[in-house]
Design a protein around this nucleic acid. Sequence first.
RNA 1: UGGGGUAUGGUGUAACGGUAGCACGAGUGACUCUGACUCACUUAGUCUAGGUUCAAAUCCUAGUACCCCAGCCA
Length: 588
Amino acid sequence: MPDSPTEHTPPNAPHRHFIEQIIDADNAALKWGVNDEGVPKVHTRFPPEPNGYLHIGHAKSICLNSGLARQFHGAFNLRFDDTNPAKEEQEYVDAIIEDVRWLTDDHAGFRFGGVFWASDYFETMFSYAVELVKKGKAYVCDLSAEEVAKRRGSIGVTATSPFRDRPAEESLKLLHEMRRGDHPNGSRTLRARIDLSSPNFVLRDPVMYRILHESHHNTGTSWCIYPMYDWAHGIEDSLEGITHSICTLEFRNNRPLYDWFIDSINEGRGPGSPWGPRIHHPQQIEFARLNLTYTVMSKRFLLALVKEGRVTGWDDPRMPTIRGLRRRGYTAGAIRTFCEDIGVTTQESMIDVGRLENALRDDLNKSAPRAMCVLRPLKVVIENWPAGKVDMLDFVVNPEDPGAGTRKVPFTGTLYIEREDFAENPPKKFFRLCPGQEVRLRWAYFITCTGVVKDAAGHVTEVRATYDPATRGGDAPHGPDGKPTRKVKGTLHWISADHAANGTVRLFERLFREAEPGKKTGNQLDDLNPGSLETISALIDPALTTARPGDTFQFERLGYFCVDSDSRPGALIFNRAVTLKDTWAKQE
RNA sequence: UGGGGUAUGGUGUAACGGUAGCACGAGUGACUCUGACUCACUUAGUCUAGGUUCAAAUCCUAGUACCCCAGCCA
């Protein structure tokens, strides 16, 4: 039997968040029984509505739910809450399945129940609705949407409906007519008979079914009434045997309704009951959704960005969508680590987007092969380099991963370095290249700047330097005491002019200029960063010409880059996922 | 105005009547063939006011701030 977290808590065990604690207690009491492995049962789900693309906020929920299933040796379902055909599309369904599979590491570590559909349960839901009507717990109401709103009441004012006391027989007849398609959109609803004067408005006789003559992506035209979220959701959970139905904080008020529907179905049920056996009653638990600085996560807004062409699509690397992050170069592991890192509570919070970026840096630092790339080239001519000589030097693929080995990189007398790595009049503590100063070219040689060439306007167009043959490989010669004879503080990346490949590099900044977009003006668009994308032509390490879309590298000293899906052999495109930390830039 | 929630360093999160801790950030330093990584040190907090108690972040009372709810959305 797999080890159970409830068996013994080791000393100094990492903190367990409130949902884990609930599950610990449930398991200790065997509240949900055991699964077929004999392990206390834990079954979670992620229930998106297929009306948009998944974003980093959804990732928190996906990681929480799938992570719990993994941790407790339970199961995890992906379930589409497709109860509103007016808003839902197959395009979103396909994208969501792909994103969830990618993010959950293709379901490793937990039993993946599969892909489920609320629409598969429509028939069962309807039969339960009939049951509630018969039990006097639901009725057909002929009020229009406007009238219901008008009669909704207010704080301290009771709602009303003239149809509340309609006989069950009559409601039943009308309900079947509604299903058959006898009534137009909006003409009637099925409502739960709960409490028209409840201070919790959710309980003021909520609508269970509305009439929608609309084609559904799964059920086609076989239905023209569709269940509302509150009515449908608990039944979906119940039918799938979900134990812990985890949702976000704004559903707190809905929890009494979630429970009411299941309790009402169960009323009078049991052994020997004509209604049948009792149905499973999962526990709804709410947690705080993710808020990220410099990020907008509303589906409506993201859709607008796409439709108005402010980004190139749902997978634009600047988008907070799962596929946007993925295209940018984010790994599933980094996103999972981030989601674990930020914790699970009932307090609303605002997470610094820098933490997401840090999670990526941590992940890629260990795994990404290094390469050199010059974004803004400045020519360097080595005056004492033998004409025509090409020196093949050893380049360490990843210093963090000795197993990655080395590869060869060509060095010649004409090179390019980063323009910002040279200063004619250096500021204090500038230990890059400047007149008279010696620096190291990474894995190559020490060079010393001997002068510059300028154009008519006085701009530096070329740097002259000499190299020290004794520093081949980038090490200073060692003295008789075994210590290096001299130290250089600066190490620069470089590319041989004759060997450089050309490529396109896309540099991104945050999509928004303000930590909380729209906070000042009320319009998030006002804070859109017009300079969030910079596309430049760069000189690329010749070894990267065979790189394929999705491959990720660290360009030394510049950041982590991912080969874009638009990239082609001979027309390389790299996205910068995130920069390296740069304490020098901060000083300036 | 009714109901439901939440308040701990800059940010996030622990402490479940008994030493306010951890992570991230920030600062300083060490190390370094990436001004990266790594390591060390420093920084800074219990919303307010009362009360109970030997002892309160925790319990009580009264405030304050913020979030959610009057869709035939989810």
